[in-house]
Amino acid sequence: MSELRFDGKVVLITGAGRGVGRSHALALASRGARIVVADRGVALDGTGGSDGPAGEVVNEIRAAGGEAVASCESVTEEKGVAAMIETALDSFGRLDVAINNAGINGPELFENHVFDDFRRMIDVHYFGTVLVSQAVWKHFMKNGGGRIVNTVSEGPLGIHEMMTAYGGAKGGVIGLTLALAAEAPKYGIAVNGFSPRVATRMSSPEVMSHVYGRPPESFARLGQIFPPELCSPAAVYLAHESCPLNGVLLACGGGQVLRTAVMQNQGHTSENLTPEEIAANVDKVIDMSAAVNVGVGVGKHEAQPNAKLAGGNQTTLQSAH
């Protein structure tokens, strides 16, 4: 198969100054894309700010012969997002792809969280994704299409503790991604989600030690197993114009890529359903062995490619190779 190139394409990446976003930026630039490196340069919890991270990535791309510009605006402010789009158009004359990757972290047990923790997570992860997506959406509508790749997470799946604030916000991004995908094809737009399995400052040995109550050194090898560059291939693929997917969530890291999907089974049906009947048939109600995918989740211009994508009555999130 020929290399997936992005020559002449312009890609806006938020949170591109470090970690996963930086890896995406370098990978896409190496394939010919012109990159808007958007990063506020904040601390892990969202405080502070610096133009250093974005500038460093821009310099790295240019040193390798690529084209890039920096934007140090905030994804939480409408005027900041508008400035990002303006930077892309002023610098390169077009915009083809948006990768919503800006994020913060602050794992804590639910009883120890304060309300502002939830607000900060929602402002950056959810509303940040909403603002950027809506800004580029209107641009893509005028120009016959484009691609949006939203950074989601496996945090909302309930597989880790201390994820209520972060996972709740990312759960909103998953919902937004799937709902947008239902509207996207009529405008030539594709919207997909990408969940990085990666070791960055958001999952540093110190952060993981806090979550799992084990010494930081026990997580030291995660950086070798899950470096950012091993998660970027999925995001790069989803960003390419040849990718037929829309409404699909891919997880990638450590040399593996897999799909996470919302599934439904046929459940139990009764003309006079009662709580007692549900109790008597609970095994059937929760059995997902014959579950099928819900929603679009397939080709860019196909709602459902086969009959197996019919609906059902119970929903869960599953991962599959």
Rank of each mutant, 00 (worst) to 15 (best):
V20L: 04
A181N: 03
P215S: 15
A165V: 03
G41I: 05
A16G: 01
V292K: 12
E277N: 08
A290G: 12
F219N: 07
V248F: 05
M1T: 15
A38N: 15
E86H: 05
H125D: 10
R259D: 10
F226N: 07
V10Y: 02
A83T: 09
L230N: 13
G15K: 08
V97G: 03
V296S: 11
N143E: 09
H139D: 10
S204Y: 05
R120W: 02
G188W: 12
G312H: 08
V298W: 02
V58I: 02
N281H: 13
I278Y: 06
S153K: 06
M121E: 05
A261I: 06
S218C: 08
M208N: 14
T164M: 03
G19W: 02
A179D: 11
I122C: 10
K9Y: 00
N105I: 10
C243E: 02
S242V: 04
L109C: 13
A63Y: 03
H321Q: 12
F140N: 01
A182K: 13
E206G: 04
G175Q: 13
A82Y: 06
R94I: 10
A135M: 07
G8H: 09
T177A: 09
L44M: 14
P227L: 08
Q134N: 07
V75C: 05
P227Y: 05
K300E: 07
L180P: 04
V42D: 10
L176D: 00
F115V: 11
K284Q: 15
P305K: 01
V42I: 15
G103Q: 01
F226E: 05
G146P: 01
D45W: 00
V207W: 01
L157V: 02
A184E: 02
I61G: 02
N101L: 04
V114R: 05
T164Q: 04
C243T: 05
R214Q: 15
S203T: 10
E78P: 06
L249K: 10
L309V: 11
L4M: 02
G145T: 09
G15Q: 11
G93S: 14
G299A: 13
L317A: 12
L28C: 01
V149H: 08
L250R: 04
G171N: 04
T87F: 00
G48S: 02
L4K: 01
G247L: 04
K79Q: 12
W137G: 00
A291P: 08
L245W: 06
A135S: 12
I122K: 04
T87N: 00
V207L: 08
H139F: 09
Q266I: 04
C231M: 14
V57C: 10
E302T: 14
I148M: 06
I148L: 08
F118I: 09
G55S: 14
T260M: 12
N246W: 09
A33F: 06
V81R: 05
Q318F: 15
Y187G: 00
L178E: 07
E60K: 07
D90N: 10
N112H: 14
